[in-house]
Design a binder for these strands. Structure first.
Length: 288
DNA sequence: ACCTGACCTCGTCT
DNA sequence: AAGACGAGGTCAG
Protein backbone atom coordinates (compact mmCIF):
# COMPACT_ATOMS: atom_id res chain seq x y z
CA UNK A 1 0.00 0.00 0.00
CA UNK A 2 2.61 2.51 1.13
CA UNK A 3 4.91 1.13 -1.50
CA UNK A 4 2.43 1.71 -4.37
CA UNK A 5 1.81 5.28 -3.31
CA UNK A 6 5.50 6.09 -3.17
CA UNK A 7 6.00 4.33 -6.47
CA UNK A 8 3.38 6.54 -8.08
CA UNK A 9 5.01 9.54 -6.51
CA UNK A 10 8.44 8.72 -7.84
CA UNK A 11 7.03 7.96 -11.29
CA UNK A 12 5.32 11.32 -11.22
CA UNK A 13 8.66 12.98 -10.66
CA UNK A 14 10.02 11.63 -13.94
CA UNK A 15 9.14 13.61 -17.06
CA UNK A 16 7.87 11.78 -20.11
CA UNK A 17 8.94 13.98 -23.02
CA UNK A 18 6.83 12.24 -25.66
CA UNK A 19 3.62 12.27 -23.63
CA UNK A 20 4.16 15.89 -22.69
CA UNK A 21 4.79 17.02 -26.28
CA UNK A 22 1.72 15.01 -27.30
CA UNK A 23 -0.72 16.52 -24.86
CA UNK A 24 -2.04 19.33 -27.00
CA UNK A 25 -0.02 22.18 -25.56
CA UNK A 26 2.47 22.65 -28.39
CA UNK A 27 2.32 22.18 -32.15
CA UNK A 28 5.78 22.88 -33.56
CA UNK A 29 7.63 19.80 -32.39
CA UNK A 30 8.97 16.89 -34.40
CA UNK A 31 10.98 13.81 -33.65
CA UNK A 32 14.04 12.93 -35.72
CA UNK A 33 15.94 9.81 -34.72
CA UNK A 34 15.84 9.74 -30.92
CA UNK A 35 15.57 13.48 -30.41
CA UNK A 36 12.70 15.93 -30.24
CA UNK A 37 13.16 19.32 -31.90
CA UNK A 38 10.82 22.08 -30.84
CA UNK A 39 10.35 25.70 -31.81
CA UNK A 40 9.83 27.99 -28.83
CA UNK A 41 9.74 31.57 -30.02
CA UNK A 42 13.21 32.39 -31.27
CA UNK A 43 14.75 29.32 -29.69
CA UNK A 44 15.01 25.75 -30.84
CA UNK A 45 14.98 23.16 -28.08
CA UNK A 46 16.61 19.80 -28.74
CA UNK A 47 15.79 17.05 -26.28
CA UNK A 48 16.62 13.40 -26.06
CA UNK A 49 13.39 11.46 -25.73
CA UNK A 50 14.82 9.42 -22.86
CA UNK A 51 15.61 12.56 -20.87
CA UNK A 52 13.95 12.48 -17.46
CA UNK A 53 15.34 15.56 -15.74
CA UNK A 54 17.17 18.77 -16.58
CA UNK A 55 20.06 20.65 -15.10
CA UNK A 56 18.93 23.69 -13.21
CA UNK A 57 18.66 27.02 -14.98
CA UNK A 58 18.92 25.98 -18.60
CA UNK A 59 16.10 26.69 -21.09
CA UNK A 60 14.65 23.20 -20.90
CA UNK A 61 14.50 23.35 -17.12
CA UNK A 62 12.06 26.26 -17.24
CA UNK A 63 10.24 25.09 -20.36
CA UNK A 64 9.26 21.90 -18.52
CA UNK A 65 8.48 23.85 -15.34
CA UNK A 66 11.04 21.99 -13.27
CA UNK A 67 10.98 24.82 -10.74
CA UNK A 68 7.41 23.89 -9.77
CA UNK A 69 6.95 22.20 -6.42
CA UNK A 70 5.74 18.76 -7.49
CA UNK A 71 5.32 17.46 -3.98
CA UNK A 72 2.78 20.15 -3.33
CA UNK A 73 1.10 19.90 -6.74
CA UNK A 74 0.86 16.14 -6.38
CA UNK A 75 -0.84 16.52 -3.03
CA UNK A 76 -3.54 18.63 -4.69
CA UNK A 77 -3.92 16.45 -7.80
CA UNK A 78 -4.39 13.19 -5.97
CA UNK A 79 -7.40 14.53 -4.08
CA UNK A 80 -9.57 13.98 -7.15
CA UNK A 81 -10.23 10.34 -8.01
CA UNK A 82 -10.40 10.82 -11.78
CA UNK A 83 -7.31 13.00 -11.94
CA UNK A 84 -5.51 10.43 -9.82
CA UNK A 85 -6.43 7.75 -12.34
CA UNK A 86 -5.14 9.93 -15.22
CA UNK A 87 -2.00 10.59 -13.22
CA UNK A 88 -1.40 6.90 -12.81
CA UNK A 89 -1.78 6.39 -16.56
CA UNK A 90 0.35 9.35 -17.66
CA UNK A 91 2.58 10.20 -14.72
CA UNK A 92 5.24 11.92 -16.83
CA UNK A 93 3.11 14.74 -18.22
CA UNK A 94 4.06 18.30 -17.41
CA UNK A 95 2.63 21.69 -18.09
CA UNK A 96 4.95 23.69 -20.32
CA UNK A 97 6.04 27.28 -20.01
CA UNK A 98 6.07 28.48 -23.60
CA UNK A 99 7.15 31.58 -25.41
CA UNK A 100 4.16 33.89 -24.88
CA UNK A 101 3.90 35.38 -28.37
CA UNK A 102 4.07 31.98 -30.04
CA UNK A 103 1.50 30.58 -27.62
CA UNK A 104 -0.79 33.59 -28.17
CA UNK A 105 -0.76 33.24 -31.96
CA UNK A 106 -0.93 29.43 -31.82
CA UNK A 107 -4.17 29.37 -29.89
CA UNK A 108 -5.74 32.12 -31.99
CA UNK A 109 -4.95 29.87 -34.94
CA UNK A 110 -6.39 26.85 -33.11
CA UNK A 111 -9.97 28.10 -32.95
CA UNK A 112 -12.57 25.89 -34.62
CA UNK A 113 -9.85 23.62 -35.96
CA UNK A 114 -7.90 20.45 -35.26
CA UNK A 115 -4.32 19.57 -34.40
CA UNK A 116 -3.07 18.54 -37.89
CA UNK A 117 -4.48 21.76 -39.37
CA UNK A 118 -3.14 23.95 -36.60
CA UNK A 119 0.31 22.46 -37.02
CA UNK A 120 0.36 23.02 -40.79
CA UNK A 121 -0.74 26.63 -40.45
CA UNK A 122 1.87 27.43 -37.82
CA UNK A 123 4.58 25.79 -39.92
CA UNK A 124 3.46 27.92 -42.85
CA UNK A 125 3.69 31.07 -40.74
CA UNK A 126 7.20 30.14 -39.60
CA UNK A 127 8.38 29.31 -43.11
CA UNK A 128 7.03 32.56 -44.50
CA UNK A 129 7.90 34.98 -41.69
CA UNK A 130 10.45 33.25 -39.46
CA UNK A 131 14.24 33.07 -39.54
CA UNK A 132 15.84 29.93 -40.93
CA UNK A 133 18.21 27.92 -38.72
CA UNK A 134 20.13 24.73 -39.32
CA UNK A 135 20.76 22.31 -36.46
CA UNK A 136 22.44 18.93 -36.91
CA UNK A 137 22.00 19.48 -40.65
CA UNK A 138 18.22 19.78 -40.17
CA UNK A 139 16.52 22.94 -41.36
CA UNK A 140 14.12 24.78 -39.03
CA UNK A 141 12.27 28.07 -39.04
CA UNK A 142 11.94 30.06 -35.84
CA UNK A 143 8.61 31.50 -34.80
CA UNK A 144 8.17 34.94 -36.41
CA UNK A 145 8.71 38.12 -34.43
CA UNK A 146 5.56 40.10 -33.73
CA UNK A 147 6.93 43.04 -35.74
CA UNK A 148 7.23 40.91 -38.88
CA UNK A 149 3.63 39.70 -38.74
CA UNK A 150 2.45 43.22 -37.86
CA UNK A 151 4.01 44.55 -41.03
CA UNK A 152 2.79 41.72 -43.24
CA UNK A 153 -0.19 42.21 -45.54
CA UNK A 154 -3.41 40.35 -44.93
CA UNK A 155 -2.98 38.42 -48.17
CA UNK A 156 0.51 37.26 -47.14
CA UNK A 157 -0.96 35.92 -43.91
CA UNK A 158 -3.83 34.34 -45.84
CA UNK A 159 -1.26 32.44 -47.92
CA UNK A 160 -0.50 30.42 -44.78
CA UNK A 161 -3.93 28.78 -44.95
CA UNK A 162 -5.26 30.42 -41.80
CA UNK A 163 -8.54 31.49 -43.40
CA UNK A 164 -10.68 34.01 -41.54
CA UNK A 165 -8.19 34.00 -38.67
CA UNK A 166 -5.77 36.13 -40.73
CA UNK A 167 -7.28 39.39 -39.52
CA UNK A 168 -7.04 38.28 -35.89
CA UNK A 169 -3.44 37.18 -36.32
CA UNK A 170 -2.50 40.54 -37.76
CA UNK A 171 -4.39 42.60 -35.18
CA UNK A 172 -3.05 40.51 -32.33
CA UNK A 173 0.51 41.06 -33.55
CA UNK A 174 -0.08 44.79 -33.92
CA UNK A 175 -1.37 44.90 -30.33
CA UNK A 176 1.93 43.41 -29.20
CA UNK A 177 4.18 45.71 -31.23
CA UNK A 178 2.20 48.72 -30.00
CA UNK A 179 2.63 47.55 -26.43
CA UNK A 180 -1.11 47.24 -25.83
CA UNK A 181 -0.39 43.62 -25.01
CA UNK A 182 2.74 43.33 -22.88
CA UNK A 183 3.39 39.77 -21.78
CA UNK A 184 5.72 40.72 -18.94
CA UNK A 185 2.98 42.94 -17.54
CA UNK A 186 0.42 40.19 -17.91
CA UNK A 187 2.68 37.81 -15.98
CA UNK A 188 2.70 40.23 -13.09
CA UNK A 189 -1.07 40.68 -13.03
CA UNK A 190 -3.42 38.24 -11.38
CA UNK A 191 -5.39 35.72 -13.42
CA UNK A 192 -8.53 37.85 -13.81
CA UNK A 193 -6.75 41.07 -14.68
CA UNK A 194 -4.56 39.37 -17.27
CA UNK A 195 -7.50 37.54 -18.82
CA UNK A 196 -9.46 40.75 -19.11
CA UNK A 197 -6.66 42.25 -21.18
CA UNK A 198 -6.33 39.22 -23.45
CA UNK A 199 -10.01 38.94 -24.38
CA UNK A 200 -9.92 42.50 -25.74
CA UNK A 201 -7.92 41.14 -28.66
CA UNK A 202 -9.86 40.01 -31.75
CA UNK A 203 -9.88 36.22 -31.97
CA UNK A 204 -9.33 35.66 -28.25
CA UNK A 205 -12.29 34.43 -26.24
CA UNK A 206 -12.46 32.65 -22.90
CA UNK A 207 -10.93 29.36 -23.97
CA UNK A 208 -8.04 30.77 -26.01
CA UNK A 209 -7.25 33.27 -23.26
CA UNK A 210 -7.09 30.46 -20.71
CA UNK A 211 -4.70 28.48 -22.89
CA UNK A 212 -2.38 31.47 -23.21
CA UNK A 213 -2.57 32.15 -19.47
CA UNK A 214 -1.90 28.55 -18.49
CA UNK A 215 0.72 27.61 -21.06
CA UNK A 216 2.79 30.79 -21.19
CA UNK A 217 1.86 33.28 -18.48
CA UNK A 218 2.20 31.15 -15.41
CA UNK A 219 -1.45 31.22 -14.34
CA UNK A 220 -1.94 27.71 -13.03
CA UNK A 221 -5.56 28.23 -12.01
CA UNK A 222 -6.50 28.73 -15.68
CA UNK A 223 -8.60 25.78 -16.86
CA UNK A 224 -9.42 26.03 -20.57
CA UNK A 225 -13.01 24.88 -21.13
CA UNK A 226 -13.16 23.47 -24.62
CA UNK A 227 -15.57 20.91 -26.04
CA UNK A 228 -13.46 18.09 -24.64
CA UNK A 229 -13.25 19.45 -21.17
CA UNK A 230 -17.00 20.10 -21.06
CA UNK A 231 -17.54 16.54 -22.21
CA UNK A 232 -15.16 15.27 -19.51
CA UNK A 233 -16.85 17.28 -16.78
CA UNK A 234 -20.21 15.87 -17.82
CA UNK A 235 -18.97 12.30 -18.19
CA UNK A 236 -17.03 11.90 -14.96
CA UNK A 237 -18.57 14.53 -12.73
CA UNK A 238 -22.19 14.40 -13.95
CA UNK A 239 -24.00 17.41 -12.54
CA UNK A 240 -21.30 18.72 -10.23
CA UNK A 241 -20.48 21.63 -12.53
CA UNK A 242 -22.94 22.73 -15.24
CA UNK A 243 -24.96 20.99 -17.92
CA UNK A 244 -22.77 20.47 -20.96
CA UNK A 245 -23.64 22.26 -24.14
CA UNK A 246 -21.62 22.88 -27.27
CA UNK A 247 -21.22 26.57 -26.67
CA UNK A 248 -21.45 28.38 -23.38
CA UNK A 249 -21.92 32.02 -22.50
CA UNK A 250 -19.33 34.17 -20.73
CA UNK A 251 -21.35 33.98 -17.57
CA UNK A 252 -21.62 30.18 -17.62
CA UNK A 253 -17.92 29.86 -18.44
CA UNK A 254 -17.05 31.99 -15.44
CA UNK A 255 -19.40 30.09 -13.18
CA UNK A 256 -17.97 26.71 -14.21
CA UNK A 257 -14.45 28.02 -13.74
CA UNK A 258 -15.17 29.11 -10.19
CA UNK A 259 -16.56 25.71 -9.31
CA UNK A 260 -13.63 24.03 -11.01
CA UNK A 261 -11.07 25.97 -8.99
CA UNK A 262 -13.00 25.29 -5.82
CA UNK A 263 -13.01 21.57 -6.60
CA UNK A 264 -9.56 20.99 -8.14
CA UNK A 265 -7.69 23.69 -6.24
CA UNK A 266 -5.13 26.29 -7.24
CA UNK A 267 -3.32 23.91 -9.59
CA UNK A 268 -6.50 23.24 -11.58
CA UNK A 269 -4.54 23.79 -14.80
CA UNK A 270 -2.40 20.75 -14.05
CA UNK A 271 -5.52 18.68 -13.37
CA UNK A 272 -6.95 19.76 -16.69
CA UNK A 273 -3.85 18.61 -18.57
CA UNK A 274 -4.02 15.08 -17.17
CA UNK A 275 -7.76 14.79 -17.78
CA UNK A 276 -7.43 16.09 -21.33
CA UNK A 277 -4.64 13.68 -22.21
CA UNK A 278 -6.48 10.70 -20.74
CA UNK A 279 -9.73 11.38 -22.59
CA UNK A 280 -8.15 12.19 -25.95
CA UNK A 281 -6.11 8.99 -25.80
CA UNK A 282 -9.24 7.08 -24.87
CA UNK A 283 -10.83 8.40 -28.07
CA UNK A 284 -7.72 7.80 -30.21
CA UNK A 285 -7.40 11.42 -31.20
CA UNK A 286 -4.36 12.49 -33.19
CA UNK A 287 -1.37 14.29 -31.78
CA UNK A 288 1.69 15.55 -33.64
C1' DA B 1 -28.39 39.33 -21.43
C1' DC B 2 -28.80 35.04 -23.90
C1' DC B 3 -29.02 32.49 -28.35
C1' DT B 4 -27.80 31.35 -33.27
C1' DG B 5 -25.48 30.93 -37.25
C1' DA B 6 -21.66 31.78 -40.15
C1' DC B 7 -16.97 31.16 -40.73
C1' DC B 8 -11.68 29.57 -43.93
C1' DT B 9 -9.21 25.32 -44.52
C1' DC B 10 -7.93 20.94 -44.88
C1' DG B 11 -7.33 16.07 -43.25
C1' DT B 12 -10.41 12.14 -43.03
C1' DC B 13 -14.08 9.42 -44.07
C1' DT B 14 -17.43 7.47 -47.36
C1' DA C 1 -12.13 9.63 -56.83
C1' DA C 2 -15.06 13.58 -55.75
C1' DG C 3 -17.94 15.41 -52.09
C1' DA C 4 -19.30 16.03 -47.43
C1' DC C 5 -18.11 16.56 -42.69
C1' DG C 6 -16.42 18.64 -38.73
C1' DA C 7 -12.57 20.22 -35.81
C1' DG C 8 -9.58 21.84 -28.47
C1' DG C 9 -14.04 28.72 -30.82
C1' DT C 10 -15.25 33.47 -31.66
C1' DC C 11 -18.00 37.19 -33.06
C1' DA C 12 -21.93 39.81 -34.69
C1' DG C 13 -26.57 40.38 -35.08
Amino acid sequence: MIQSVSKLKSKFQEINIRDTINSGQVFLWEKKRDKWYGIDGEKILVIDEKKREFRKNNDEFYFFRQNDNFEEIYSYLKKDKIVKKALREFPGIRLLQQDPFQCYISFIVSSNSNIPNIKTRLQNLCRKFGEKKVINSNEFFLFPKSSVISNASLSQILDCGVGYRAKSIKEASVAVTRGEIDFENLKNMNYYEAKQELVKVLGIGNKVADCILLFSLNKLEAFPLDRWMLRILQKYYSNKFEPATKTITDKTYESIHQKVVKHFGKYAGYSQQFLFKMERELNNKKWL
